[in-house]
């Protein structure tokens, strides 16, 4: 195979596998809130374990909220999402990038999520912070760090 046809084959494969390919290549990067979040943010959160406790609480509140829980019941997988959200939030709070899931665009592309549903998840995030007794100001660091994903997630 010459170089041109290799490229063409790769391109076709990418198109065929669609989202799967995209997620394999486009796992998320750290976001860049302005001004930056404090360097001790992850520490304030109690490290990766703290983030995990929060993600558990987050899904507790998400699953109680009738504005959004139907989406998660139908298409979500709480166990997997708690695992992946722990990795993602640990990263955006300043930890290492160990995120193994799909990009935010790919993960939410077909869900037709609107602003109210996004805000409902934000409200659940605040409730989860309170549940794990995290200071409100520390909680806002995760909001600052996740906010840049808004346009990737809200497609309606």
């Amino acid at each position: 195979m010459n170089r041109k046809s290799v490229t063409a084959t790769l391109l076709a494969a990418a198109l065929l596998s669609g989202v799967a390919m995209q997620s394999a290549f486009a796992a998320e990067e750290k976001t860049n809130p302005i001004p930056g979040i404090p360097s001790n943010s992850l520490e304030m959160w109690g490290g990766k374990d703290g983030v995990h406790e929060w993600a558990v609480a987050l899904f507790h509140y998400i699953m109680l909220d009738t504005r959004i829980n139907f989406l998660f019941k139908e298409f979500g997988n709480p166990e997997r999402q708690i695992f992946l959200n722990t990795q993602l939030e640990t990263m955006v709070l300043g930890g290492p990038n160990e995120y193994q899931g799909a990009s935010m665009t790919a993960a939410h592309a077909d869900l037709n999520i609107n602003m109210e549903q996004f805000n409902a998840v934000v409200e659940a995030a605040y409730n989860a912070c309170e549940r794990i007794n995290l200071h409100y100001w520390a909680c806002n660091q995760v909001i600052a760090a996740l906010a840049p994903f808004t346009d990737d997630i809200v497609t309606r």
């Binding site: 997620s23 139907f70 139908e74 298409f75 997997r80 799909a102 037709n112």
Partner: peptide, 23 residues
């Protein structure tokens, strides 16, 4: 990655239709 791919392979059309119905 395996589970990830499985999730991603879910047919977009079916998914969208189901969301519409749920909505």
């Amino acid at each position: 990655m395996k589970r990830n791919e499985r999730a991603a392979r879910t047919g977009s059309f079916l998914k969208a239709a189901a969301i519409l119905a749920a909505g």
